[in-house]
Write a protein that binds this DNA or RNA. Sequence first.
DNA 1: GTCTATAATCCGATAGAC
DNA 2: GTCTATCGGATTATAGAC
Lengths: 212, 212
Amino acid sequence: MSTLRERISDAAKELYLREGLEGFSMRRVAEMVGVSAPAIYRHYQNKDELLNEIIIEGLKILDDYLRLALSAKTPYERLLQLLEGYLNFAVEQPKYFDFAFITPSSGIDRFPAELAKHDWTTFTSAVGQIYQCMEQGVLKKDDPIETAITLWAEVHGLVSLYRVQRFGQSLDTFRQIYWRAVRRILQGLREDGALTEVGQADGSSPTSPGSG
Amino acid sequence: MSTLRERISDAAKELYLREGLEGFSMRRVAEMVGVSAPAIYRHYQNKDELLNEIIIEGLKILDDYLRLALSAKTPYERLLQLLEGYLNFAVEQPKYFDFAFITPSSGIDRFPAELAKHDWTTFTSAVGQIYQCMEQGVLKKDDPIETAITLWAEVHGLVSLYRVQRFGQSLDTFRQIYWRAVRRILQGLREDGALTEVGQADGSSPTSPGSG
DNA sequence: GTCTATAATCCGATAGAC
DNA sequence: GTCTATCGGATTATAGAC
């Protein structure tokens, strides 16, 4: 059992995933649901409101990817898993990633409050892991917030450049590039000389939460 | 003296800078030039081909920003200036930055060969500075290509997140965030203990090439 | 080579009947 | 709440005169 509003929302997500923002239209959503286009406006005020539904769905899925990290045993492993969750979300849910993090003003100008709240929640979680790493001496004492920004920017830059085709098309190659870059950063954030390698010793990725 | 093709190209750039991708249309370009819309198709096969003109212009402007870095005296200063050129380009020419580096498939699917060539040229230049830094002992010996990727991803991630409103709206604040993150990365890439600070000692930016 | 005119579609959104 | 019909607009692209 599902309401018409839910069916519209589901169809919108399906259409966006299949056709992208370019092929997304109210008319086609209506056609998929089996109603006329104006009927949608009884449930959503306009196109932007329907598109917001898609962003929110993407954030939920990103949460699923990141939540898996919290089950790891040490703060450092949780941090690595968070970094991998971001990678897996971007490469396994590229359309959602694009819409939530890439697409600038095309489509939606004002970003919904959910987005800011979501950012804050997950960012705070990452800061917590980093803080614990510093307390344990796994990372050098530093400002955990600024350190989190530094790491977030690195992984976001990597996946963004991958999304706009700057690292070729091979996912395997990109995963190697990703982890070598991230580990190079982490190396610089570690206590000098101490604990040269924590966790995996090679450049391969931890277990993939999304593909397992 | 200018050909009609050049006038179309100029009008297209002007319209895109003023209205963005959303407000860009063949009709409006034609209107600006003072010809009918179909006349444009005598000089450009379709809309994508005209949009490519804009990307190429953006890459030329980016080159202007990055070329200023080469006049600095040391490899490390040239590297810092390159990193600042990227920042200045992104914040001073946001529309060009968005189109060349953010906008995914909306608008253009296949990226022109110019783009790949440009990437390669400027990237190679950055790798050269990094290599020299390593030879001089300013940076730890490492793979200069991977190091360049790591740095590129960091600055690209920072400016991309800024462009999608993740760091608030204050440019001054963002510049501070940017340089603190970049310097944190560079710190980790330096020889352990040696040369704790090269160049500016505070977190402020070098001289801005674009705003001076 | 450039023009006018127009085709053939698509879009978001609304009005008003039922 | 859903429908038909339609408005007002956009788009790429072509036909044919000049």
